[in-house]
Design a protein around this nucleic acid. Structure first.
Ligand SMILES: [Mn+2]
Ligand SMILES: [Mn+2]
Ligand SMILES: [Zn+2]
Ligand SMILES: [Zn+2]
Lengths: 131, 131
DNA sequence: TTAATAATAGTAATTGTTACTATTATTAAT
DNA sequence: ATTAATAATAGTAACAATTACTATTATTAA
């Protein structure tokens, strides 16, 4: 834990706004004015690989980061881009109404993406030493 | 409908692979060798704005395009990046097993993102002329 | 202290995408 | 046909997010 890494982690944990790397850079700069953007990216990558933070690969191009690693989903505003947490397993149609009450968000759309291993790749795994 | 636009649409509709703009460019080039990547991007944008194709903003950075606009979700291979269709409303935990049978995909993770309008933006809408 | 290791700052390179511009194609009016 | 107006193109430049590179600085282990 270098000073830079610690400050990045500290500042990220203060936020519930799921900032981009650039936003974190601007915040950390107040405490470490000479830190470089590369260091921010490198440490965010490091921390998320260690499972200390979460890297959110939401739709849209920019990566966002989350200081809280408990299992939860997210909701994004299609107007301003803001990303908020979603109470754990609040899901699907029947929840849209509850969500309005609980978070104030009017749900317009839901995106569900499954991640898995395709048949081809599963075959490859079988072929290898010990998938 | 220019020739370029038509060929882009034709080729996209031949595929079920949800190609990136670059992949479409490479394919269309075989029929129109002098087409430019800019034209491909411009027409994909145009076609998806018209609702003729779908632009998929899945997690991960690159945009993908879908010639089929009926409502369906997608599944991506975490190994090779391949994106496949998902039978319409197959959803969540109990489905993982069925998905394995139906698509051959071993589900590792699910990502659900809600899109909506945040409380702030909803307030703004109220303030404006006619939301 | 010196050598080995690791992380950094600063910058350059890469990548996906969009914007710009001069040229070419299409249409409508003469 | 000839012209003018419009739209789309090819090619290139600009852009923004991210990653890679490199010389320097900090840390640790002999
Ligand atoms: Mn969160
Ligand atoms: Mn599809
Ligand atoms: Zn908003
Ligand atoms: Zn695969």
């Amino acid at each position: 834990m270098t000073q830079q890494r610690q400050v990045i982690l500290d500042e990220l944990r203060k936020l519930d706004s799921h900032p981009t790397a650039d936003e974190i850079y601007e915040i950390v700069r107040r405490r470490i004015p000479r830190i470089s953007l590369g260091t921010v990216y490198r440490n965010l990558e490091f921390l998320s690989r260690c499972g200390i933070i979460r890297k959110l690969e939401l739709s849209g191009s920019q990566m966002r980061f989350d200081g809280f690693i408990d299992r939860h989903n997210h909701i994004r505003c299609i107007r301003c881009g803001r990303v908020d947490d979603l109470p754990a397993e609040q899901l699907l149609t029947e929840c849209d109404r509850d969500l309005l009450k609980e978070t104030g968000y009017k749900v317009i759309e839901r995106r569900v993406e499954f991640l898995g291993v395709c048949p081809n790749c599963r075959e490859d795994e079988g072929t290898e030493s010990a998938g």
